[in-house]
Design a binder for these strands. Structure first.
Length: 165
DNA sequence: AGATTGAGCGGCA
DNA sequence: TGCCGCTCAATCT
């Protein structure tokens, strides 16, 4: 099995990828240089055409300029997670652009607990591609692995959050 | 195999 | 608002 851990840089944004036999199993959101080193361990910077193409998709997703469903059709990925997390992420996949669901709502659908749903979000290996940023708390925005500032940015870019002080 | 830990939630003061 | 207890998959001991 061939494992590849790379980072692609596009105008100051760093996106990390892990491939298993050329199939995407993990990615990061666009991060600063400091953040990528904090959140992701990688082997090399990649300049491969299809890696750059993927990174551009991730950037577009972050800035709300592309649909996640579209990216999922373009990219060869596999969800390398437990059966439970897969079930949760399958629900999350169906949350449309520009709308949100709460941890509790998803928990109810799957007959589990909100905390268990949150745990699965934390383990989402394909952020933005699987839109876990669209899962929020009932009374607040909820958490985000890369920091809630990013979650707020993404939701702003999708037009979900309009005014924020 | 048991204890602890969360990207949560509802109830009650 | 703030706290307390319930929850349940995943992650320690």
């Amino acid at each position: 099995m061939f494992l590849e851990k790379v980072v692609v840089e596009i105008n100051g944004y760093f996106v990390g990828f892990i491939f298993k036999d050329d199939v995407l199993v993990r990615n990061t959101i666009p991060l600063s240089r400091d953040e990528i080193n904090k959140f992701f361990s990688w082997e090399k910077i990649s300049n491969k055409k299809h890696h750059i193409k993927m990174a551009k998709c991730i950037l577009r997703l972050y800035f709300g300029k592309m649909l996640d469903s579209e990216v999922r059709e373009l990219i060869d990925y596999s969800l390398d997670v437990t059966p439970f997390t897969k079930k949760v992420l399958d629900v999350v996949k169906n949350i449309p652009y520009g709308s949100v669901k709460t941890y509790g709502e998803i928990a109810k659908e799957l007959k589990t607990s909100p905390r268990a749903v949150g745990r699965s979000m934390n383990k989402n290996p394909l952020p933005l591609v699987i839109p876990c940023h669209r899962v929020v708390g009932k009374d607040n925005i909820g958490g985000y692995s890369y920091g809630i500032t990013h979650k707020i940015n993404i939701l702003k870019n999708e037009g979900v959050i309009t005014n924020l002080k």
